Amino acid sequence: MVLFVAKDISEVTHAEWKQWKFLNSSQNCYRSPLLEPEFAKLIASNNDHVRVIFGQVGEKIVSVFCGSGRVAGMVRPLGAPFDDYSGPLIAEGYQISMNDMLRAGGWHSYRGEGCATPEGVLMDAKFESRGYSFVAQIEDGSAAEYLAERWKDNPKRMKNFRRLSRKLDKDFDTVELRYGVNNPSDIQQLFNWKSNQFSKSGLVDVIEAEKSSTVLQAVSSVKYNEENNFGGYLIELRVNGALVAGHFGLRSGENFHPWISAYDPDHSELGPGIILLYRAIEAMDEMGLKSYDLSGGHDHYKKYFAKPSREVGKLVYFRPTILGTIQGVGFKSWNLFGTKNENSIASRMRRRFDHLAICETRLMPRLKGFFEAFLKRHNTQNS
């Protein structure tokens, strides 16, 4: 029988930390910096609501779930909205109960989009949907051999990407791929470009929103280097010394998970984003990387550089408690307005409200963000 124990991150013992790390590396679906105890510790340093739930059989830890509790016992994945992967992590050969796990944390409901848990190991919960994330993963061989495989699958596209890259070398005196420097002003420049992009497109600005910006700042404050094997990592494309594109995110050892991908709009005609990604994957050996995680989503370019190699699921669970039932009824009531259709207006509204609730704690910025986004999206579609 699996017994669940809830703890603050500061209470995790060395032995528990070690077993957590083992679970993190035991299956490919869990090998992400976002599921490591170091990430939980980093987020907990700026969030008093983070708790970890260990599922134990005797002294052995067979499951780990770390989340951030919300009002009325609602819990979200750690680091949301930058939660491309979430738990629970479950050891092979075991099954757990979501109800028992959430009860140990004092939570009544859970909602997450990127659950990395395989199907069939949650006894009392089912995924609403399943999808894949795109990971450039070098199992054996070199980065050059990996790119050669991508060439075989997408010869026309890869030839075009190489042409853009060579044209950049021809048109400018110096073209440099820089990595690991983490200059704060360069990181801020990426954030500014991305924030402007969000504003123009009508999407929620995760750079400026209160909760999401706290996550970004926490990761920015811890630099990955030889002494610190976990932290923020920046890869830059520079032309004649000027920053034109970059990827910023979390790196742990050989694994890099960029969150913010942005480029200088004044140089968009150069294709800087594509060139950056092409050259970054080309330089994975040089950077000591085996995994370059592009996560999920509908960005068309991802399929040319990475295979849909990691399965994730949308998990929504409401405990059979008074609060859990009320929250479940409220969530499912959206179905009356047509949210079963992912492309319906009601479905898009629910996702927008949900995203704002994750990113922003204050009511007025939430309402302002919703109506501004609605108007901009409406104007964009009618222009």
Score class of each variant (00 low, 15 high):
Glu236Lys: 02
Leu294Gly: 07
Ala306Cys: 06
Pro365Gly: 08
Phe337Ala: 13
Asp293Val: 09
Ser347Met: 06
Glu311Gln: 10
Ser344Met: 08
Val57Lys: 15
Leu147Arg: 07
Ile207Arg: 01
Tyr278Thr: 01
Ala357Trp: 09
Lys314Arg: 10
Arg348Pro: 02
Gly202Phe: 01
His300Ser: 14
Met287Gln: 14
Glu59Pro: 00
Glu119Lys: 07
Leu243His: 10
Ala245Ser: 15
Trp20Phe: 04
Arg31Cys: 10
Ser199Val: 01
Ile187Asp: 03
Phe230Glu: 00
Leu270Gln: 12
Gln197Ser: 08
Leu168Asn: 09
Pro258Val: 06
Tyr233Met: 00
Ala104Asp: 04
Phe305Met: 03
Asp8Pro: 00
Glu360Ala: 09
Ala262Ile: 09
Arg351Leu: 14
Ser333Trp: 11
Leu237Ser: 05
Ala357Phe: 07
Gly114Trp: 01
Phe331Pro: 00
Ala136Glu: 03
Ala245Ile: 05
Ala125Gln: 05
Met349Ala: 09
Ala136Leu: 08
Phe172Asp: 04
Ala209Met: 04
Lys200Gly: 07
Gly58Trp: 08
Val2Asp: 03
Trp334Asp: 03
Ile96Asn: 02
Ser333Ile: 13
Thr117Arg: 05
Ala91Leu: 15
Ala242Tyr: 14
Ser199Cys: 06
Gln381Asp: 11
Val206Arg: 00
Glu360Thr: 13
Asp84Val: 13
Ser185Glu: 14
Tyr263Lys: 01
Lys200Cys: 02
Ser25Thr: 13
Val222Cys: 02
